[in-house]
């Protein structure tokens, strides 16, 4: 769709759970340099789409590719290019921050000095040095989120998929994470899901709005904001069924 190379390609992706269709024929692609804000009310299918993209859920129909690698056909190759922050940033509670990041680094094939450098760099980016030897279970919610973020950034992936990266952070930490995302943006394709609308204007170059499993808007944040008096009003008009929106 763009002249730039698309690092993430999602084609007609569909996920059904029994009779319920969580994600319905979603198609979009994300090019290098783009930060795509993935918006939608809770339960709209954001996390399900991201899980399929990350190879955690198998699509009912359709395909997704990361750097040209099909996530179903070649899952390990696709995952190598991907940094994924799952919803809620799960981590092993008994491990220390360093231990956890070293595990993620090792699983990605780093050893010895390279592994140490990667872990140190990821901790520096997410300001985790102060808690490096603490078990993850003793950390506050904001720190846990940053540990998950550090694990996603560790291998400097071409594609970042972050499910609610700023959830649970205080305003200062949110600001730092947004700066970090902006700084990384030129070399990567980034998808962040959020339901905080101000975040979209702050970091995203493009916004895809999803409701009841379907894409209802795909535009720049400025275009989206221009459609109504406020961003909130635009979001409601797009995501609520027609009768309720009025």
């Amino acid at each position: 769709m763009q002249a730039l190379t698309a690092l993430i390609e999602i084609e007609r992706l569909t996920k059904r759970f029994g009779a319920f269709t969580a994600v319905d024929d979603v198609t979009f692609s994300v090019a290098k340099g783009e930060v795509l804000g993935f918006l939608g009310p809770n339960g709209a299918g954001k996390s399900t789409t991201m899980r399929m993209l990350a190879g955690f859920m198998t699509p009912t129909a359709g395909t997704a590719r990361i750097c040209g690698e099909d996530v179903v056909e070649r899952p390990v190759a696709a995952k190598r290019h991907l940094g994924f922050l799952p919803e809620g940033a799960p981590t092993y509670p008994e491990m220390t921050v360093t231990g956890f990041l070293r595990f993620c680094g090792r699983a990605r094939g780093f050893h010895g000095a390279a592994l140490g450098d990667r872990v140190a760099h990821a901790m520096a980016l997410t300001q985790l040095e102060g808690v490096r030897l603490q078990p993850v279970e003793t950390l506050s919610k904001g720190f846990k989120r940053r540990v998950g973020l550090a694990a996603a950034l560790l291998h400097d992936p071409a594609v970042l998929v972050l499910d609610e990266p700023t959830d649970g952070l205080d305003p200062n930490q949110k600001h730092e994470v947004r700066n970090l995302i902006r700084a990384m943006a030129p070399d990567k394709a980034i998808v962040i899901s959020t339901h905080i609308l101000e975040e979209v204007g702050a970091v995203c170059t493009r916004a895809v709005v999803i409701a009841r499993g379907r894409v209802v808007a795909d535009a720049t944040p400025a275009e989206l904001a221009a459609r109504g008096p406020t961003m909130d009003a635009v979001f409601r008009a797009l995501t609520l069924p027609a009768a309720e929106a009025a």
């Binding site: 899980r51 990350a54 955690f56 995952k79 994924f84 919803e87 799960p90 092993y92």
Partner: peptide
């Protein structure tokens, strides 16, 4: 229960 299965299975491991 912890959700770490999502992390483990999205690492590049078979």
């Amino acid at each position: 229960r912890l959700g770490t299965i999502e992390l483990l299975l999205t690492l590049p491991l078979a």
